[in-house]
Amino acid sequence: MTALDRAVEAAGSQLALANRLGIRSPSISGWYDRKKVPVERVIAIEAATGVSRHDLRPDVFGPAPEKGEAA
């Protein structure tokens, strides 16, 4: 399961996630097609679902910090 899958599941559906982000659901389908969440949406997804920015875009935010390590 990808980080985007986990975010969609946490929100309840693609439509629910899109509504939380104030965007249209087809945008999320496009992220699946491109296999990347746009960087400008990552923080909002993290806030809305709890899925880490590090999991959503490790190429931008790096790996998740170890427990006890400062983010």
Rank of each mutant, 00 (worst) to 15 (best):
A44I: 02
A64L: 15
E66P: 03
G50A: 03
E66S: 15
R6T: 11
A47K: 14
I43H: 05
L15D: 10
A71W: 14
M1I: 04
N19Q: 14
V39Q: 09
A70T: 14
K67V: 11
R34M: 02
A70M: 13
A7R: 05
R6C: 08
G22E: 01
K35R: 13
V8C: 02
L56M: 06
A11I: 04
D5T: 09
S25V: 12
F61W: 14
G62L: 11
G22M: 08
V37M: 05
V51T: 07
V8A: 02
F61E: 03
I28F: 07
R41E: 00
G50I: 00
I28G: 07
R41G: 02
A47M: 12
G50K: 09
V8E: 07
A11F: 07
E46K: 05
I45N: 04
A3R: 02
W31I: 02
K67Q: 13
V8W: 03
S25T: 15
I23A: 04
A44R: 07
A48M: 09
E69G: 01
G30S: 06
R24F: 09
D59G: 13
E46A: 09
R53I: 14
S29F: 07
I43A: 11
A64W: 04
P65C: 06
K35Q: 14
L4M: 13
I28M: 06
A10K: 13
P63F: 13
A71F: 13
P65F: 03
P38G: 01
D33Y: 12
G50H: 03
E46G: 03
V51R: 01
A3N: 08
R41W: 11
I23V: 15
K36Q: 13
K35Y: 06
G30V: 12
A71M: 12
A70S: 15
H54R: 06
D55R: 13
P38I: 00
A48W: 12
L4H: 04
S52G: 02
N19D: 10
A70Y: 09
S27A: 15
E69C: 09
A10S: 12
A3F: 11
D55W: 08
L21N: 00
A18K: 00
A71E: 14
S13A: 07
S27R: 13
A7L: 04
D5W: 07
G50E: 08
L56G: 05
R41L: 04
F61N: 00
D59Q: 06
T2V: 05
I43L: 11
S52M: 05
A16L: 09
G22N: 04
L17Y: 05
A11L: 09
W31S: 01
Q14Y: 00
K35V: 09
R6L: 12
T2F: 06
S27G: 08
T49L: 07
A16D: 11
P65N: 00
L56K: 08
A18G: 01
A11N: 08
K67P: 12
L56R: 07
G50W: 06
D59W: 10
R34Q: 12
